[in-house]
């Protein structure tokens, strides 16, 4: 079994108003050092033992469903579960 940790973030070219609002809040309570906040998604996917190549499966799932590559990018880590 494998545990896959997938991180989905907005591309740099896409504005993240939610992140900007959080940045503003952090600064308001005294964290003036915070120069940027970007909000993304984190997914944990458990994959049962399979003959198929896990890396290929994860990549396919990310491209087909888990992310919209028009606006998002992703990276992942595959660990033994």
């Amino acid at each position: 079994m494998k545990k896959v940790k997938i991180y989905v973030t907005l591309k740099e070219s896409i504005l993240d108003p939610q992140g900007s609002a959080v940045q503003g809040s952090l600064q308001k309570i005294g964290y003036n050092e915070v120069s940027d906040v970007r909000i993304g998604k984190y997914l944990e996917v458990t994959i049962s033992d399979t003959d198929r190549d896990v890396d290929t499966i994860v990549k396919e799932m990310c491209e087909k469903v888990l992310t919209n590559t028009v606006i998002e990018k992703y990276r992942y880590e595959i660990e033994e579960a």
């Binding site: 907005l10 896409i14 108003p17 939610q18 919209n68 028009v70 606006i71």
Partner: peptide
């Protein structure tokens, strides 16, 4: 259709 719809700018 091309492109995508994202969060309204003013949230």
């Amino acid at each position: 259709l091309p492109g995508a719809l994202i969060r309204n700018k003013n949230l």
